[in-house]
Design a protein around this nucleic acid. Structure first.
Lengths: 180, 180
DNA sequence: AATTTATGTCAGCCATATTGACGTATCTTG
DNA sequence: CAAGATACGTCAATATGGCTGACATAAATT
């Protein structure tokens, strides 16, 4: 139980090590790191959300509604890439429990513009706090330039074709601040 | 349809913009970028896997079995953080369809050590190719130092406490090559 | 007046996750 | 050797969160 071998003995050990970064070809290491990093990154909020009877979907909705106040339901669907029915369930919960409120659009009264209530703001800030702590810790021993490199990388990982409105905003901001 | 406003008119537009990076406190931007980056990062393989009748879980199993040949079932459970029952189904499929094979452990014959077959290697390489393409593109305009910064960041995002065996291997390799 | 759009909702299906219990082979230990 | 622990597999029941398809309503557009 205390050894690091994946198999369990010298005879197996040779082939039980990481496949070695001999391939200059494929980015196995980064693929793997992204998996673990994201796994742990969402684990913090997930744990917290359990206490509320919410899931990851609720967090995503709260996050984007907070970040883009007045977001339309249709925009939210584009961003989350889920169906109206799936969104409907979580959105209804968040409305019923007072985390989000809807306002009828001024110009187009069919629209329901979404806003986070103070209660919703509190929740989303709490969750962002957990994730921020992890991010700050990860950025700790690399200066502001390092943080910019990371942001640049993440932005470049995102599909540019057919961006939804939230992404347009991000890229617009990103372009302006790429060298900031 | 061509405007960037989230709401739809001047009267709403003011509050329908990104909440502004005024907060020096919380890392909203990186939180969001991680969401989108990961979303698109897994979308490529997900799409490909559909053709095989496989899901994301199959990909993960194939990836780790490929990377750490001779992995035990118990180790896989630790890494994926799912239950034996859930793993059982996807593993059975992969075994039945010839993507993975089991060998009884030499020393402990209770163990079933997992290996990717050539067929499995082909699949996992194909999927890694898609993800590598995206990663290389994202790293394109930043030198090797940039790639190291990114790796450093991702490693630092991962929980250190209670690492499973795969993570131990990653951190061991990472420590050695942090300045490589 | 007819059509399209934005939203909501009902009904049912599927994939993937869960917990709990149990069985079997095998290793370890008293 | 007998007893217990371990590695793995599997059965059953359940929950969550996606999905499709169909349909309804209100409001905008043509």
């Amino acid at each position: 139980m205390a050894d690091i071998n994946f198999a369990n003995a010298p005879s197996d050990a040779a082939e039980a090590r990481p496949a070695a970064p001999r391939e200059g070809d494929l980015r196995w290491d980064i693929i793997e790191l992204l998996f673990f990093a994201y796994r742990d990154f969402v684990a913090d909020p997930d744990h917290e959300l359990e206490a509320f009877g919410f899931g990851r979907a609720h967090h995503r909705v709260m996050h984007f509604v907070h970040r883009y106040p007045g977001l339309k339901v249709a925009d939210l669907l584009d961003v989350l890439r889920i169906t109206k029915q799936s969104l409907g369930r979580v959105l209804k919960q968040l409305l019923d429990e007072g985390y989000i409120l809807q306002k009828t659009g001024n110009n187009d009264r069919r629209q329901r513009l979404l806003y986070a209530t103070p209660k919703g703001e509190a929740l989303v800030a709490k969750l962002a706090g957990l994730q921020t702590k992890r991010i700050n810790q990860a950025l700790a021993d690399m200066g502001p330039a390092g943080a910019e490199t990371v942001k640049h990388f993440l932005r470049a990982m995102i599909d540019r074709d057919d961006p939804d409105k939230v992404l347009e905003a991000i890229f617009a901001a990103g372009t302006a601040s790429t060298k900031e």
